[in-house]
Design a protein around this nucleic acid. Structure first.
Length: 488
RNA sequence: GGUCUCGUGGCCGAGCGGUUAGGCACCGGUCUGCAAAACCGUCUACUCCGGUUCGAAUCCGGACGAGACCUCCA
């Protein structure tokens, strides 16, 4: 049991408050996060959510919790929305790309896995798929019908929100009231087979043109959108588990309906803590596929988006994202990215310096206090921006020690070094110590720098400046320091 | 139309009753053959109007502005 356990507070969307984190089974944590629907390549906004939950996963591990992290893959198209329109995103993609549905999913899953590697996401404990759990979904639906909270119409099954509301409270997560829902809705869409407009599909009868069809007690069809998460979360984490996460936009209706399904089937809410990560904005507006204002996580790394005139490393992007709280909106702009890039390299420079520092018999500042501040930042609802601010404070101290204006003991130095690296690398998931020096170029550069140094020793400024300017044209920057010349 | 969130210095972004958040840029300094880089220092803001309070960016009310959800969405 880590001494740092027990201080964590989490903002629970269900209560709207920060709550002390107390796992259901002492040091075990069950966490379920809604993953992507793989009908296309996940965009940067999608990635932000996964990166944020990766950070949360990492910190929980750091606190020595035994975490079971389940993140699903939606590989079944959902053919209805409450408006009654037919929207099967995967089927649509399959048709337009002339592939089978699972081929589409496989194709984009390969890309998604690659993105996870690029952005240094830890693999979840398990990534279950919707199509692999059709049986479990059917069983849940049967139980809901049995409990009287769903009805069958013409081969489809709908959740009965009115019946449910007699015993449970529909809308506890999103704050919506069933009686008000009717007036709230801008346009009352065709209810079709539904008894009440707020009812939602648990199972939908197949259309002849559907590409994926499953057999069920109600005939051939497809599962509804929400039931897959209920089936998979309870299968792998139990009826009631610790954390359920996802993007803010899933709060309603998806998470609300998950709660209803869980209560309707098992009599209890699925999760103790609900966490919602906020959206990524582009020019103040939510990045989304439908708005078309998105770019892909690979494009920004390769520098191929029109939005930015240069590529950024995945580390810089992660660092940039971690400078904003997971519950806040974040605007992606070139200026902000450049600022993050500079700040990040400042932090890296300090970390490179840390192992070269000379130690003293005493420390001139409270190192333990500084380290504690790393933990308390993260304990306060995963406040990564504060953590980073504290890391910069540490970086400043390192520089001051280097300048002889601060002192540190051997013991303090070693724990500061360990903790800084731990938080940057293991908690924030940002790789440090990456050198981009080309192995073939390095000896050439050594030679060039040596020649320039000779010229400088001879006070031949014309030659030395010519070398410096020439390299600059080639994109190589020469840095003269006290300890010699370096390049990048 | 309904529900909700938010409006912080040139930019990004924390804080949410009393303390310098932090980063980037600017400016000053150190270093340097000159530069660049690096490091140190400085810069003290909270949309507006009322109210509560000894004290408000932080709480309450109002105005204006922005965004999210209500339809597939991370």
């Amino acid at each position: 049991m880590s001494s740092h356990q027990g201080n964590l507070k989490i903002y629970n969307s269900l209560s709207g408050q920060k709550e002390k984190f107390e796992p259901i089974h002492s040091s075990f944590v069950g966490m379920y996060v809604c993953g992507p629907t793989l009908y296309s390549e996940p965009h940067m906004g999608n990635m932000r959510t996964f990166i944020n939950f990766d950070m949360i996963f990492r910190y929980l591990l750091q606190l020595d919790y035994k975490v079971k992290y389940v993140r699903n893959i939606t590989d079944a198209g959902h053919i209805t929305n409450s408006a009654g329109d037919e929207v099967d995103s995967i089927g649509k993609a399959a048709k337009s790309e002339k592939m089978q549905s699972l081929e589409i999913v496989y194709k984009y899953n390969v890309k998604f896995q690659e993105l996870q590697r690029i952005y240094n996401l830890l693999p979840p404990s398990i990534e279950p798929t919707a199509t692999g759990h059709i049986q479990e979904q059917i069983e849940h639906i049967e139980k809901i019908i049995e409990n009287g909270f769903a009805y069958v119409v013409n081969g489809s099954v709908y959740f009965d929100v009115k019946k449910y509301s007699e015993k449970f409270e529909y809308g506890i997560l999103s704050g919506r009231k069933v009686d008000e829902l009717a007036e709230e809705t801008r346009t009352l869409n065709a209810q079709g087979e539904k008894r009440f407009f707020a009812d939602f599909a648990l199972w939908k009868k197949a259309n002849p043109e559907d590409m994926q069809i499953w057999r069920s007690p109600w005939g051939n069809g497809n599962p509804g959108w929400h039931i897959e998460c209920t089936a998979m979360s309870t299968k792998y984490l139990g009826n009631h588990f610790d954390i359920h996460g996802g993007g803010m936009d899933l709060k309603f209706p998806h998470h609300e309906d998950e709660i209803a399904q869980n209560c309707g089937s098992l009599g209890c809410t699925p999760a103790k803590y609900w966490m919602h990560a906020n959206m990524l904005n582009v020019n103040g507006q939510k990045m989304s596929k439908s708005l078309g204002n998105f770019f892909l996580p690979k494009e920004i790394v390769e520098g191929t988006t029109a939005l930015f005139d240069k590529p950024y490393s995945p580390n810089v992007i992660r660092f940039f994202m971690m400078q904003a709280h997971y519950r806040s909106n974040l605007d992606f702009t070139q200026d902000a990215l450049n600022a993050a890039e500079k700040g990040f390299s400042r932090l890296l420079d300090a970390l490179q310096l840390i192992d070269k520092l000379t130690v003293s018999p005493t420390s001139s500042f409270d190192v333990k206090d500084l380290i504690t501040s790393f933990y308390s930042a993260m304990d306060d609802d995963f406040n990564a921006p504060i953590l980073i601010a504290n890391l910069f404070e540490a970086a400043k101290r390192i520089n001051l020690i280097n300048d002889g204006k601060d002192t540190i003991t051997k013991e303090d130095l070693s724990s500061l070094s360990t903790e800084m690296k731990r938080f940057l690398q293991d908690v924030l998931g940002i790789e440090i110590g990456v050198t981009n020096s080309d192995s073939k170029l390095a000896p050439v550069m050594d030679l060039v720098i040596d020649l320039r140094q000779q010229a400088r020793d001879n006070k031949d400024w014309t030659t030395s400046d010519k070398i410096r300017d020439g390299l600059a044209t080639a994109g190589i920057v020469i840095k003269d320091t006290k300890d010699g010349t370096s390049w990048s």
